[in-house]
Write a protein that binds this DNA or RNA. Structure first.
Lengths: 236, 236, 236, 236
DNA sequence: GATGAATGAGCATTCATTCAT
DNA sequence: TATGAATGAATGCTCATTCAT
């Protein structure tokens, strides 16, 4: 009776297992160094089995990206309906980012994979719409927040919100790329290197650095003459 | 006596020839699609000969990057000794960037290759120092300009100039990546696609877009309360 | 009692369903492009189930061929007991072939699959006898007709009827292979391509071409000095 | 001085060696079972090296076919300029075929590979002209001979020479396919199987069989009422 | 100094077949 | 009886790098 449900559950779990292995490897070696072979080995499956769950490498990578994007989206989406001011939403959006950045690998994954998949395509304006709905939802949400800030007189009314959200996202990408190679020490093993990176991402110094960068961009968005204190990210 | 000099000169020329061929191919196909085979063929040399001049592909790419960085550096370095104010230097630095961006391929090369090489290394804190002196010199110069702006009370005194220069450079990278895929038309051939991109890079719309992005970052750097008009990039 | 019969009936029907799906796919994609996966999907069964009915791909294909051969056989077998002269039987045999060729896909199936299966086995002397009884029955009937024609003084008494029937069958194979790639137009979809081919097989031009080829072979079989008019296929 | 010549010679020899290995394997296992890996192994080279000489598998196979076609062409081309009657040329053409069939593997190769390459394309009317010049030259020559026979009143004036040459070539293909699997014995090894086949191709029985088939087709081409003795292939 | 030749290791993808349930 | 899941073995192809000449 529950047999098909169990099957379905197992299938979903296996899917997740593969995705997790792939994520792990991406963190370990970088997207461009991960092969289907590697993923299969890590997942203790045959290569062919991977293709049972994902029709191709690009699909798998996109799925990974989407999964992480969904995590991010779920993490900050509630903010959008709080009735808060745009700048407050943006501040909390940032806090979400930093939190996830420290506590999970998802932020690293999103931007690393995205950067790889789109290495010869613009980050925004993907060819086929709907292919990466969650990533696009993040972009859309970000743009919405910026527009709200403009509407509320916090951001420069002449600010191009498409450009602005693109800039922000790009900044995230760069922060991720930088963060991904922070530990300069001698990693005993691959596993430990990932662990070191995870630790490093929680370091107050790094977070402060990142926040500074974000702060700069936000200030750049601001309306002329605005009292800067209301942009202060560190403040609650 | 002049024989060894001629040898050396020829060697340098050959080096440059290889680098130029590689550049051309990078523009034509994108960094990740260029193989040593391609470069050798274009340079009308054997693959093995390439290895006589460059110990490996990464070294070759780094050198390419360096060469373009040198061009850029030479282009704006005179500015540094003009005795102008920091912000004026920065404005002219930007103009240099835009000029070169439109007239030569070097800006594309620098950032495309850099982005490729460092896809698993930090843009800033490279492992072995001194490996990319020209790129670092640009970074240094940029940092110097920012420091000067800080000193002159134009930029926020708390601005982390290392971070700031890194941010700027990252922004350049993104602009380049975006610009690289602008022509959405039907390229008849690879050659014509490169040509289309070259044309596109001169388009006022693109330059305006880029300038907006730069402007945002600069505003983000500014000291609180500063009259924004003095940051206006478009102004002379 | 009726239960096991129903079981058996269902089994037979399922078998046929699988065979029909496979046939469809063969027409759609060509024998060499059809995988067990495709067949299973089309039959709305699992791959493993297919193996419950057929011990392997080659057995399945052979069965397909047999089924079509049976259709052909049933179509022309009544002729054999009509008491007609050999040459008249042969003419009607040909008419049967052309009719089936135009109206069903069986002729295409027989010869395409046969050609594929035997690409490394002789068409005639198969290893294990009795493996393809219907195909052999066709060959046998053909041989019988030719022998009758010999007996009736229409065909060369020295004609090797085994060779002759083999030649005829080979000719059919070639006609099928040629016919399979007739529509040079732009097929909107696989389905429409099959439809186009079905239409094309009814075209008078193609039938005339095929008849010419058949006529040539028949003339080659004829007894020396025979009045050719009695070999005229087009005549009733 | 002769160094580059030696290089070139070696290159040509290597090319030939690869082609010969591939031919051997085709005879041994059939075209469809031969992989680039197999060829490399047999040639005692790495797979990559094969790609140094042939840009792809299809190119390699086509080359093999062309080489054999060239052998055939060179073998019978002198006939075309002898001023002989069409039917005499055809007879000698046939003798060329039989001779080569017995003494070399080329006839087997041509028709096996051709049959494979064109498994879903018509034998005649290839897509891109000039891709297989030698094969096309053979077809053309055959058509020319048939036309000459028509002109000389030996063949039916209504004979469609394109169809006729296609039929002949198809017959050759079938003879080859059949001959390729003649030895029904137990081959001790792959090598010995090929050897057995080579022997079998010289057997008078097989040659007689083939000649009969050819004779039938030729008779089918003949003008009505023609004295058959002049078509006798066995006669000088 | 230059190069033709060679290659090992790798990659994404496919497919007939098996087996526990 | 039926199947979901798994896989081993291929397959065509690429590329940075090496080395004898």
């Amino acid at each position: 009776m529950g047999i098909s449900e169990r099957r379905e559950r197992e299938r979903v779990e296996r899917r997740r297992a593969i995705l997790n292995c792939a994520k792990e490897l991406i963190l370990l070696q970088g997207v461009e160094r991960v092969s289907m072979e590697d993923i299969a080995q890590k997942a203790e499956l045959s290569k062919a089995t991977i293709y049972l769950y994902f029709s191709g490498k690009d699909v798998l990578l996109n799925e990974i990206c989407e999964e992480s994007a969904q995590v991010f989206l779920n993490h900050f989406r509630p903010l959008l309906e709080t009735g808060l001011s745009g700048i407050d939403i943006l501040k909390r959006f940032w806090r979400s980012y930093v939190e996830l950045f420290g506590s999970s690998d998802d932020m690293i994954i999103i931007f690393k994979v995205r950067n790889f998949l789109n290495s010869w395509q613009p980050i925004i304006l993907q060819g086929e719409p709907g292919k990466s709905p969650y990533v696009e939802a993040i972009l859309g949400a970000l743009k919405g927040i910026i527009d709200q800030c403009k509407g509320e007189g916090v951001f420069d009314p002449d600010l191009d919100s498409t450009l602005a959200s693109s800039l922000l996202l790009s900044m995230f990408t760069i922060l991720v790329e930088n963060a991904a190679c922070i530990p300069p020490g001698n990693p005993d093993s691959d596993e430990s290197r990932v662990q070191m990176q995870r630790e490093a991402r929680k370091s107050p110094a790094l977070i402060e650095e990142m926040t500074k960068a974000f702060q700069i961009i936000i200030r750049g968005f601001a309306r002329e003459g605005l009292d800067r204190s209301c942009l202060d990210i560190s403040a609650a």
